[in-house]
Design a protein around this nucleic acid. Sequence first.
DNA 1: GGGAATCGCGTTTTT
DNA 2: CGCGATTCCC
Length: 812
Amino acid sequence: MHEFDSVAPSAPHATDPRLLANLNPEQLAAVTLPPGHALILAGAGSGKTRVLTTRIAWLIQTGQLSPGGVMAVTFTNKAAKEMIARLGTMLPVNPRGMWIGTFHGLCNRFLRAHWKLAALPQSFQILDTQDSLSAVKRVVKGMQLDEERFVPKQISWFIAASKDEGRRPRDVAVHDEQSRVMQQVYQAYEDQCQREGVVDFAELMLRTYELLRDNDPLREHYRRRFRHILVDEFQDTNRLQYLWLKMFATPPDRAASSSSPGDSDANSVFAVGDDDQSIYAFRGAQVGNMADFEREFKVREVIKLERNYRSFGNILDAANHLISHNEHRLGKNLRTEAGPGEPVRVNEAPSDFAEAQWLLDEARFLHREGSPRSEIAVLYRSNAQSRVIESALFNAGIPYRVYGGLRFFERAEIKHALAYLRLTENPNDDTSYLRVVNFPARGIGARTLEQLQDAARASGRSLHQSVGALGGKAGANLGAFNAMIESMREATHGLTLREIIEHVIATSGLADFYKAEREGAERLENLDELVNAAEAFVTQEGFGKDAVALPVDETAGPGTIADGLPQAVAAVDFTPDAETGEIMSPLAAFLTHAALEAGDNQAQAGQDAVQLMTVHAAKGLEFDNVFITGLEEGLFPNERALADADGLEEERRLMYVAITRARKRLCLSFSQTRMLHGQTRYNVKSRFLEELPEAALKWLTPKNQGFGSGFAREYQQAWQRGSGLGSMVGAGRVESPPAWATPKTRELTVESPAASGALTLRVGKSVFHTKFGEGVVVTLEGSGADARAQINFGRHGMKWLALAIAKLTPID
DNA sequence: GGGAATCGCGTTTTT
DNA sequence: CGCGATTCCC
């Protein structure tokens, strides 16, 4: 089926000496590894991206690889873009033509090229998580299941998780009624997606994997084409991504059987990852893939990049010391030549409010000292923690930026516009149909849609096709909607993408609707922004001008292929059909782009602002000054994560990621009390604080260390201000009961079995229990013999104790 | 069909 | 407590 140009690698050219300059010995070894599968353990701040890009540039410069023979995979669009941008400065070729992208982006390209083999429509559309959930809801409703028992969200999660493990409905384990129904829903969901010509994120991966698995010539073709496969953040790969990778890689036994590696037709996988930064197990990532890779791919070279170019010594000591408490590691220790730097400072606050206040003063101080606000990052374990910090910053008028939340293409008004656009492309997309059939309102109610869905189910056709089944006013309204979609389709024929979108926003009634809305101005702006995004997309991708294969001289070489698939296309989102070269419409391509790249999720960019984000969101970023807040048992480590065995280790890795974000200054803080879910919680400080080396720390609270001069004075003032704010915070020390707490009893005196004599307990007081260790009294109830106390023992959890029996001693 | 009241829930998130 | 989703009522 395929013919290949088996061009042996030419003798290395003289490389640009600047390319390899300033690499340390380990980096150099990684960059210049001979062909063969390799695993690079790249510690935080060790120059990972540099090694990846330099490796590609070096292979190309030395003539071992043509741009068309590269496949580089990342997890995020941001990482892919960065790689492309850096390569652009290193190479005289256009890196946009290389197969560099996210797992999902590359799958999309692959399926666009082989849509027929994959049994998809050429302009199949991609469901994001929201779309997918509403599709599942539709299925569940259609099957008339009890939504209490079969929660759509859970089923949606189950389907995604199954696909992420490579399981089709027939492969899922069925052991009871519940799982049997789940399987049926999964099957029905698949049928529905197939009927509507849509795929969800996991389907992109799974479909690609299966196509390669079941089609030998195709698989062999791609194995020959991609000489070098590079994978970033390998520790975050899930089961399916690992299997997927195996499809592209030459099996190691075949690679080994070749006498000389240089002439072998085997390709090479260059996997880069850091097991200590694996923080996505909750969404299916399997760190075990690293060990599996080493074993199954018979990796000969494991290179560790341990020299850190980011942080000062004390920060690295803290990170190393902390992570050494994990048992399941491949083993790695960061080192620096930058000197110890400032100690890691630790602050204890009486309340979350005071913690925020302290943070605020600290940020002000740093800014006064010349640090840009954008170099100050405030990290927290969960999004709910940002609220107090935000309000403190807001009230003080300090600009800040919160990462997270809705992204551009996920906004309701944008999704609505996209739904109309999708319908002009494919009126049988029921998800989009239901989203906008009555938005803006046009007299199509819930019962009408029930009937329409029943009719569609009965005939096995789409909603759009089933409108004729309904008569009366309802049928007329539906007919009018169909006619509108149809006229949109006709009117936009031949228009530019920009004109199409403008037309649809106007004629759908969306523009008028938001004009009439009191709060619609921002949404209108966003719709304008959608037009701009489309314009930028077209310009950037170069569609319409020269969306054709790049000049041959840029792409020819080993790996040239002969099945009509262009080596490289200027417009990567317009991947042509592998056989016919047909390219999908700009609109379909833009819709794909919108699904695959949800856009920024940071609020108002522009001015210099303090950066607020979760630890997860901070991965891959770095800042001069980092604050890690809320270091309390239950919060960080999070109590819900402690349920499973590996939970604590993942939490610790999360802390490790947080620590290693800091370049110059690291501050840790925790609070004795915190408002959570509408009630005050009394917390014990995080065990992670105990796992840090004392020598690298400087405690700012009197208990552990006195105040000195300079910085410390600042802290003292900040702390006092923070703790002196309003009656809410009271006297500020844990010894006095917080005035704002309203438990049943605030103070209780009982005969203590431990200390012969009276024991006085107060809410907020620390106590020691012979079995559970240190805890904080949360609630007191009853009296005398049946006096009870609820005590938070941190890692041992919240306990109710009978005070007549429990052996408690007070801690001061 | 849409606004108001009520319910329920509350790690982490990219594609 | 604060939110989103659902339900209720006009």
